[in-house]
């Protein structure tokens, strides 16, 4: 069992919701998908590589027959899966400090959700509804979300420069190379082992 691989942490959480509240969550998540302005803070925080919410109705658990008993549940469930950089504490602290309104909008419909502020009881709730990952794989364990974004900027800039590199004079190339360095200089941080959080 490990929730961590390199610089990424896998979080799984499941919370019960009264079925009549499920549709409110669906509408909120639909609007979140529709309106980029609502997602901007998550994009700006930039430590989430991938994340998803799944609304799972009480009758929506896969049923395959073959001796499997059909589920008989009182609640619908909200599943949350996140792949984030940094430690659990850093993640929850940042969410509570910066995204409290957004989190409340999504999780207020879950049973016993205490609100994302103050952070201590919010953490207690998350710890209660979280369950651990048995196997976690990432294709690029040494890289964070920011590393990946930066790497693609460097790649794109390099591709542009390489297109003209053989077609100009050395002086013209030197000027273009200087512009290239200026473009990529803030995107060249080293990847490697994750730092130990203190």
């Amino acid at each position: 069992m490990s929730n961590i691989n390199g610089k990424v942490y896998a979080m799984n959480a499941i919370t019960p919701m009264k079925p009549w509240k499920t549709w409110i969550v669906r509408v909120i998540l639909f609007l979140l998908g529709l309106l980029k302005s609502l997602r901007q803070t998550v994009i700006d925080l930039s430590f989430i590589e991938f994340a998803r919410w799944v609304v799972l109705p009480r009758g929506g658990f896969p049923f395959l027959g073959n001796g499997q008993k059909r589920e008989d549940l009182r609640y619908d469930y909200l599943l949350f899966f996140s792949n984030f950089n940094g430690t659990w504490n850093q993640y929850i602290d940042a969410f509570s400090a910066v995204l409290s309104k957004g989190l409340n909008l999504i999780w207020n419909w879950s049973e016993k959700f205490p609100g994302s502020v103050p952070v201590t009881i919010f953490k207690e709730y998350i710890a209660r509804v979280q369950f651990d990952t048995d196997y976690y794989y990432t294709a690029y364990p040494h890289a964070t979300a920011n590393d990946v974004k930066s790497a693609h900027i460097v790649q794109s800039s390099l591709d542009s420069l390489s297109l003209v590199a053989g077609q100009c004079s050395p002086e013209q190339f030197a000027d273009a190379y200087l512009q290239f360095v200026l473009q990529v200089q803030t995107h060249l941080g080293e990847t490697g082992d994750a730092p130990i959080a203190g």
């Binding site: 969550v25 669906r26 998540l29 639909f30 979140l32 998908g33 997602r39 998550v42 994009i43 930039s46 989430i48 590589e49 991938f50 994340a51 998803r52 919410w53 799944v54 609304v55 799972l56 929506g60 896969p62 395959l64 599943l79 294709a139 690029y140 040494h142 890289a143 979300a145 590393d147 990946v148 974004k149 930066s150 790497a151 693609h152 460097v154 790649q155 390099l158 990529v184 995107h187 060249l188 080293e190 990847t191």
Partner: peptide, 30 residues
């Protein structure tokens, strides 16, 4: 056995695994 995702976020959503690995390699080399 699949569940439909209600909301899906991807920080980088237009690159393949191979493109990302190559970009990371390029970043170090540059």
């Amino acid at each position: 056995c699949q569940l439909d995702t209600t909301f899906f976020f991807a920080a980088v959503n237009d690159k393949t695994v191979t493109e990302t690995l190559r970009a990371l390699q390029t970043q170090n080399a540059v």
